[in-house]
Design a protein around this nucleic acid. Structure first.
Lengths: 151, 151
DNA sequence: TATTGTTATACTCTATAACTATA
DNA sequence: TATAGTTATAGAGTATAACAATA
């Protein structure tokens, strides 16, 4: 492949599945920690910040619960908070008047951008990868994710 | 490189840092979900299971709190639970009698192995990678992690 | 009757502060 | 006096069950 030194793949011995999972878990945990810290600096907890990402496209309350992986009863409070801050709003669905659709506001988009920009460690970490490494990591995530998310 | 079609690296365009972080976050979240589910099937919550991994080598209570990223007062309950199940035990430190060192038992090692084996989706996902891909992913994690964990 | 969103409630996890026993 | 571990307590986040409005 096109990588640097020429020592090739032999330089990194392939780890066992368990070891590999442990490494990925460490990266995931550190990322999540950084995300929660950045969100907190902008007055949101991680559920609220995650919800803000999920409503970049309009989503009904119940579907939002699914995306957040929590019970529907929690979504009320989460969206209440986002709405109180002016980051999202509820709109009645035209087709079914029971349904409320949550949409992000311009203010919400601004805060989300700021939170993302404010993730210093995560940004530095992934910025350290060159173009080829980023493409490789992206491809690996794409391959692994569907199997990881199966029902 | 070892991949399929021959379109090479150009096939996966390098994503922006934000997009890349989002992908990694999705993998991390799915992994953690699978881990928590597997632990629950063996009567542990994710903190307790994480603690079990952390005491594969003997660790003082306070240091364990650091590894788990929680307050020291929580560790008492977590280790109480592991001890009640026979998965870990407290031993007085020889040098300083205030300190209690937590050690995993054979039973704990067995359960930890079972939990790891029981992570069906995560295992299937990472088993789908060939040797070269696993080595690449491992290397990328190693590069990214230290920057991600900086104080 | 079934479903959406909400409310009321209880439970779990975590953090803060006070206590003990050692140092 | 300072530190390790524990205990007691309060707070945040989540789930369960019951409810009103709509389908």
């Amino acid at each position: 492949m096109g990588s640097s030194t020429g020592t090739g793949t032999a330089a990194g011995t392939a780890p066992s599945t368990t070891e590999l999972m442990e490494q990925v878990a460490a990266v995931g945990a550190a990322y999540f920690h950084d995300f929660a810290a950045a969100a907190a600096r902008h007055g949101l907890n991680s559920s609220q910040a995650k919800a803000l990402k999920a409503v970049l496209e309009p989503v009904p309350m119940r579907a939002l619960a699914g995306r957040l992986g929590c019970d529907a009863s929690n979504v009320t409070g989460i969206v209440d908070r986002l709405e109180a801050l002016g980051y999202a709003r509820r709109e009645a669905a035209a087709a079914d008047r029971r349904v409320k659709i949550v949409t992000i506001t311009d203010g919400g988009r601004t805060v989300l951008d700021r939170i993302r920009a404010d993730m210093g460690r995560a940004r530095a970490a992934f910025d350290s990868l060159d173009t080829e490494q980023r493409a490789a990591l992206s491809r690996l995530c794409d391959q692994v994710l569907p199997l990881l998310q199966r029902p």
